[in-house]
Amino acid sequence: MEIKELSFKEAMRQALQEEMKADPQVVVMGQDVRKNGGSLGITLGLEEKFGEDQLMDTPSSEQAVVGTAAGAAMTGLRPVVELGSMDQALLAFGELAHGAARPFYWSRGKVKVPMTVIIPIGGGDNPQNGQALENLFAHISGLKVVEPSNAAQGKGLLKAAIRDDNPVVFLVNRDLLNIKSQVPVEDSYILPLGKSYTERKGGSVTIVTWGAALVSVLEAAVVLEQDGVRAEVINPMTLAPLDMDPIFQSVKKTGHLLIVHDENKTGGMGAEISASVAESPVFDYLEAPIFRLCGLDVPMPYSKGLEDVMTPKAEDVIQSVYDLLGVD
């Protein structure tokens, strides 16, 4: 498989381009997507290739746009919506939660709603509007929630999301957009939804993390390894439906579980993962209480220094691992 170094943004553009070319029913819609690359810059250059048929500028009407995508998806299109920010996405929450997520169940599988909604999160634009709120979407039965951490995942998961016959919320962290990494360039490269990925093998402690937090965790894992602590890092990539099995297997092996996420602790996905482990037979293998390292329980503040203390950093991860292992 041919590999190229691409930024997260370029990798997502490649995914869109490949899927739009492969299936003319894939229609990308969002504010400024035709001339200005949309809110994330990922649609830059697609205008010449696809034109208005598959690339549609929308007004700033998140509810109507998401509802329209749902109606289009029910009747034969495969829409990809790009929204401006998480706070704008909240305006469209209802159309996602009931317009898109429920018809499949209520119709006993007769109505499918294949659509993807890309929502920018994280800093960069206006960090205070960039909370992930991933748990809100994961709570809705019928929605899939995906949060990639790097360019290769961005590409492989976006392709899978577009091909999926369900409504998928695709969270893209602005802080990762320009980071380059190795990406398979073949059209056939795809990462299935609903599969956790073991980013790093180890036997001392299991760290479950996703999105931008993975960057801090992997940084910490390198430092820990120098100290003889081998962290096994598992990235669910898809937060709904959650693939717990690799987490269970890992905890069985390490006896220690640390969950790290940028989002607020209270009611976050970490609570769900923690409870699932505590409720499972794997509980008996735990040698210490489960530990959650999460964002602070406040709205995102504006000032850069305050933004930085909101989310876990590598040194916090290292400290948490030592606390968990009972090492001074």
């Binding site: 029913q25 229609v27 048929d53 509810q63 109507a64 746009v65 998401v66 509802g67 329209t68 995508a69 749902a70 109606g71 289009a72 998806a73 029910m74 009747t75 034969g76 299109l77 829409p79 209802g94 159309e95 009931h98 317009g99 429920r102 018809p103 209520w106 119709s107 007769k110 109505v111």
Partner: peptide
């Protein structure tokens, strides 16, 4: 679906964009 009836949305007015989407499909 057998009579092309897409149903009713759960909140008042929530069906308007669903209809727009179904119309977009017909147009495309």
């Amino acid at each position: 679906a057998s009579v092309n009836n897409l149903g009713t949305s759960p909140a008042p007015g929530a069906g308007y964009p669903i209809a727009c989407g179904a119309a977009l499909t017909q147009q495309k």
